[in-house]
Write a protein that binds this DNA or RNA. Sequence first.
RNA 1: AGGGGUGUCGUCAAGCGGCAAGACACAGGCUUUUGAUGCCUGCAUUCGUAGGUUCGAAUCCUACCGCCCCUGCCA
Length: 578
Amino acid sequence: MQDKEKNIPEGNLEGCDCSGESRVNFIQAQIDDDLKAGKNEARVHTRFPPEPNGYLHIGHAKSICLNFGLAEIFKGFCNLRFDDTNPSKEEVEYVESIKEDVRWLGFDWDGREFFASDYFEKLYAYAVQLIKDGKAYVCDLSPEATREYRGTLKEAGRNSPYRERSVAENLDLFARMRAGEFADGSRVLRAKIDMAAGNMNMRDPVIYRILRAHHHRTGDAWCIYPMYDFAHGLSDAIEGITHSICTLEFEDHRPLYDWFIEQLPVPCRPRQIEFARLNLSYTVMSKRKLLKLVNDGLVDGWDDPRLPTLSGLRRRGFSPASIRNFCERIGVAKRNSMVDVALLEHAVREDLNRIASRYMAVLQPLKLIIDNYPEGQVEELDAVNHPEDPAAGSRKIPFARELYVERDDFMEEAPKKFYRLTPGREVRLRYAYYIRCEWVEKDAEGKVTVLHCSYDPQSRGGSSADGRKVKATLHWVAAPTAVNAEVRLYDRLFSEPDPGSEKDGGSFTEKINSGSLVVLKDCKLEPALAEVEAGVSVQFERLGYFIPDNRQRPLSSAGPVFNRTVTLRDDWLKSQSK
RNA sequence: AGGGGUGUCGUCAAGCGGCAAGACACAGGCUUUUGAUGCCUGCAUUCGUAGGUUCGAAUCCUACCGCCCCUGCCA
């Protein structure tokens, strides 16, 4: 480890958080090599290049953290560039949501906001240059014919009959394509490379197609649009990008990426490096599947708290820091893998445990009456807001003769390991008193409706005068001052680790976890919870982390609505399910 | 005539010829007015398999096996 640190160039040590706990990933190692070789003036400039055709998800977060992180580590820059070369799928709504999500995650592109469409004119000029150099030609083959001529994975393709058109004719035809003289799909501009290449991407790839669609930025100025392979690398070059980080499926495109850069007089020679995209267990990540869930009404929009979209995670209560930490921990490599959601859950708990104030809320209320407590009396008890952070201060909570406690905290016939409330047993009400269950009221079906208890006035605050111990501490809410609320309990959207795999035949929508959303309407909150501001995570003691739903109208008379981000770890529950 | 990748603990992931980091998960224990948090302990004699080179191999060589990606005028 000592030796390793010595190998890091002086200038990069500062600001590099490879000071011991985290190590360089393979991309950082490759960038180090490029820096040592003095490539691109020893600059590091990356970019995050989303196509504005959908919402960002946690897989994008991995890429965002990687690209912006690399720029920070190497003291370079990271651009935000929208890859908007296909107007038939892209919309402004998406560019806005993408910007909001990147900002929310905590990254700042500092004005370096670009669009591939900004370069349409330059890209067109590059294409003309290729034609002049005899490296591109206009092809009249239909889409079907093009496919047929391309050959198969095992057989070489055949040259297009239009491959040997003269430069003059190609120039004329390409200009007329732009001028709108030809129908959509009737002609394309193709790079002249090698129809026998083992790599399909090199079999004279299409670089411009005719497409009459309204573009969100250029309007109807163009009826021809560049393809990804042509536009992406050249946009990188135009922006002075040094390292173009993308996912594994583009590995096969790298020779083409390099080919365009080599053929044209570009200002910079970026290097494409691929890494494995993120797969998370118990969820789906593909845009197609997410879109289906949204369109089929299987979830409540793109920001449904069960979705791995950044807007969904935000609504669910995941903090930006927890997502960044998660992305840090999963690492970056080239092997396909599936990360356990438990790691994401761990990351939120870790962050929220640190920052969330504690409150008491009863989700499934069971009435509890303290028979020896003065009728009509209400007193204020002190409660700390955060047991590990004195600076968080304390608050008063009202206590009264009638309370609500959690249904799960009482069992008439308790198993040996259950040490919460049961007839005859004494437990502590957090920050309040020791109470003992004396008897229970039941309804006609035998369901317990009210717990009658006695309390020890000497135990005010939660500790007894004689020092006797009690095994359990329960959370509670005073009935007279309880705030009614709706609480939504979220769980993993799918019941299988890899719902996206189609190996078992079934559609992923059949694997939806029917218990992924449970809505509780008669929850009782301590008064202070009515004041929690939007976007602020809190802990309901002994239950989990919650956040006010961000779609609820502020003045709703129905009372607050909270979303459960994640439960607290629960060894008792765990031991029960075994 | 195919091309490109990749195989290290249940899940991620370091490792780059000198004797298998770390995290999550899991299992125990201590502390605790949250069965939370925190703390401690355990958890790969072995690196897809088989050969070879070497004093020494997860690291080098050879062969085999598995898995992923590629035949959009999508990105």
